[in-house]
Amino acid sequence: MSALTLYQLVALILLMAGLFGISQRRSLVGMLISVELMLNGAGLSIVAASQLTPANAMMGQLGTLFVMGLAAAEATLVLAIIVVVARRFGTTKTSVVSTLKG
């Protein structure tokens, strides 16, 4: 098994952990943590694929940097949404936060 396959399998482990977390967690913060796990798996996969193949390595590293920037932006917005939800509903449980505007 080549080194690239091993790295891809580790990235797959991260994706699976994040997917399991996001479908099983019952609070918004737990889901945010799971999303970060999945984004990390994507970054690892991109870097491994670009560093270990004849592809353009610079493009892969820059792509992962952009993924990190997007993750930071996403975490900022989710934090604000969680604060608003917690203020309005008093909790961030997903089972409670299920009413739409009406």
């Binding site: 918004l28 913060v29 945010l32 975490a75 934090l79 969680i82 604060v83 917690a86």
Partner: peptide, 9 residues
């Protein structure tokens, strides 16, 4: 940020 989210909620 996540720590802030945990503390603020």
């Amino acid at each position: 940020l996540i720590f802030f989210a945990i503390m603020l909620t």
